[in-house]
Design a protein around this nucleic acid. Structure first.
Length: 298
DNA sequence: ATCCGGACAG
DNA sequence: CTGTCCGGAT
């Protein structure tokens, strides 16, 4: 599996040993590897724990907001926005009752604006279908809009200290770095059993904080191991992209209020036909609506 | 100029 | 399974 002459960053592979329990079984870690791995992660965490407002609480709403914000968004940006959002919408009831326009206004700068709509819609669903109480199991949580497998499991782990197994980018990076140091196109299906075997079943909440902090550090320390994950892709440039136009359209309507489509098209893009299509798509997503000739935040 | 990040629709 | 969705940092 591993070229013994390769210089490896992972401490788990040497000339004559691997962290796995059998030479032909790369799914079962040896007990020694499990405890050595845990020790590395815990020791790092003890010395380098990252402080975050949403780690100081187990309020399900606070965790829920933070996890949606953290989707596709780095910690630094969430840190800056989170207090403002929580002050504006302190609980499920206030978020559920808020007009989308108000939510998007607070959301500005976070990007991927559909998240803000789904977050508000999820709050409505919590109020109406779960009696104002966030469900506890990942199975129920994924039924909420904007909550996929990773976010559902994160919420279960952080709000309820549930020993769930999940993978997000920091976790993936740690496991690829330590256990697949020379492999390419590593599937999450190969990582998940290792996450399960190394999980701290008593304190999954702190364990996942520790894993994520280590993973965030690891992308600075070594060439990002996630480039060797199966799903890794390089994104198209932002400049000149549809995403950029969408961002402009939204900001224009927030600044100017309901406007004619022509005014928005003129202000937000060079190619009128293209901008038109983008606007129509946003209407299709119920981010915008159009009535009596005026385009507005839905 | 390049990098980073989960959900969802087609 | 593949393409789409944002913006700040570097």
């Amino acid at each position: 599996m591993v070229d013994p002459d390769n210089q490896l960053n992972s401490p788990f592979f040497s000339r004559n040993s691997t962290p796995f329990s059998a030479e032909s079984d790369y799914t079962l870690l040896s007990p020694e590897a499990v405890s050595a791995f845990r020790k590395i992660i815990w020791q790092y965490y003890e010395a380098n724990r990252r402080e975050m407002a949403w780690r100081d609480t187990t309020d399900p709403y606070a965790i829920f907001v933070s996890e949606v914000m953290l989707q596709q968004t780095q910690v630094a940006r969430v840190r800056a926005k989170y207090p403002e959002f929580m002050a504006a919408f302190p609980d499920f009831a206030s978020l559920a009752a808020a007009p989308l326009e108000k939510v998007l206004r607070v959301w500005q700068g976070m990007g991927y604006n559909r998240r803000a709509k789904m977050l508000r819609d999820a709050a409505v669903m919590v109020m109406e279908e779960f009696g104002g109480c966030l469900p506890k199991t990942p199975e129920e949580l994924v039924t909420l809009p904007g909550i996929g497998p990773a976010t559902a499991a994160s919420i279960a782990a952080f709000a309820y200290n549930a020993p769930v197994v999940f993978i997000e980018t920091n976790i993936r990076r740690v496991f690829i770095h330590f256990f697949f140091p020379t492999e390419d196109k590593v599937h999450d299906d190969r990582i998940r059993p290792l996450v399960r075997q190394t999980l701290d079943w008593i304190n999954p909440r702190e364990w996942y904080y520790a894993l994520m902090d280590y993973g965030a550090m690891a992308k600075q320390a070594v060439e990002n191991p996630n480039r060797r994950s199966h799903g890794y892709t390089v994104q198209a440039a932002f400049d000149g992209s549809d995403r950029q136009i969408r961002g402009r359209v939204l900001r224009y309507l927030l600044d100017e209020g309901p406007s004619s489509r022509d005014a928005v098209v003129a202000a937000c893009g060079d190619d009128a036909e293209r901008t038109h299509k983008i606007i129509l798509k946003m209407v299709g997503e119920c981010l915008l609506s159009e009535e009596s000739g005026l385009l507005r935040i839905a």
